[in-house]
């Protein structure tokens, strides 16, 4: 029984947009990550998995529970933080987190105690009673990360949890996520976030999984290679790129007399993403 399993999961919106197209996914790690371009279907997938949205066809299960049939059971074991969630400006972080925890069944006393603890842990201790509209964008985002941490849910869905956070706040959130006892499925645009946090990564494009596995498995095809920018057949925006062995790259630089427009960089998850079938222009 996987933590998240989908089979031929399809979602077609009433306006005809096919957001998910027979998507098959099997996530089993403590922290899994779904990455993809804007419009790839990440948010639709998270919304279906968190019982917000019903699929058009196919099947999705969370820890063996069907997302349509068993949605009330699933809601007891998950915490889902939507991508564009924002705090109510007039209410404080403490009121938000405590409200969420009582919604999940905490007693009022425990909700307040746990909320205070987690907000302090995330650096919001001095701001927990201020109206949220007086907080910075990063602090507002942390309110919802605090909900996820405090929820004590078996499985936490986080849709783009660190969007808008400064580097220090992002590191604080990463630290908090690592300390979470829950299993986590997160979506992100940040490759370094996926590399830093996730034991399992699924890349989706146009509603389908185009690649999945551990970071090591995904990086395997690029073993021994480097990214050459300013040269090659693939074009991303105005930049050409290609992947060569270190030896080939050195020969190329020698051939072009160390042309400054050509540079060599180590490969990363970003390159797996580029090569995984997401649409890039080719010469």
């Amino acid at each position: 029984m996987g933590i998240v399993t989908t089979k031929n999961l399809t979602k077609v919106y009433p306006n005809g947009t096919k957001a998910l197209d027979k998507l098959n996914l099997d996530l089993n790690s403590r922290i899994s990550c779904i990455i993809g371009r804007n419009g790839a279907g990440k948010t639709t997938l998270i919304r279906i998995l968190s019982t917000q949205l019903r699929p058009t066809s196919g099947k999705a299960e969370i820890m063996g529970y069907d997302v349509v049939r068993d949605r009330e059971k699933i809601r007891k074991i998950i915490c889902s933080i939507p991508q564009e969630v924002k705090p109510v400006g007039i209410a404080s972080p403490l009121e938000h987190v405590a409200m969420y925890l009582t919604a999940r069944g905490f007693s009022i006393k425990d909700a307040l105690k746990v909320s205070r603890g987690v907000l302090t842990e995330l650096g919001l201790g001095h701001f927990m009673s201020k109206p949220s509209d007086e907080l910075s964008g990063g602090m507002k985002r942390k309110i919802f990360v605090a909900m996820a941490i405090a929820s004590n849910a078996d499985l936490v869905f986080l849709d783009e949890p660190t969007v808008g956070l400064d580097p220090i706040s992002r590191l604080e959130v990463w630290g908090a996520l690592r300390r979470l006892r829950s299993r986590v499925v997160l979506t992100t645009h940040y490759m370094e976030e996926a590399e830093a946090l996730c034991e399992e990564i699924a890349i989706i494009e146009k509603g389908k999984v185009v690649s999945s596995g551990s970071l090591e498995e995904l990086m395997e095809p690029l073993k021994g290679k480097v990214r050459v920018e300013g040269y090659g057949e693939m074009k991303i925006g105005s930049m050409n790129i290609t992947y060569l062995s270190k030896k080939e790259a050195k020969m190329l630089l020698d051939k072009y007399n160390n042309d400054r427009r050509i540079s060599i960089k180590p490969v990363s998850l970003e390159d797996v993403f580029i090569l995984s079938g997401v649409e890039v222009e080719k010469d």
Partner: peptide, 15 residues
């Protein structure tokens, strides 16, 4: 709360 802040969405998945 529903369309802009997504608070309703948060509460739905909280049960």
């Amino acid at each position: 709360f529903k369309l802009e802040l997504k608070i309703q969405e948060l509460l739905v998945s909280a049960g």
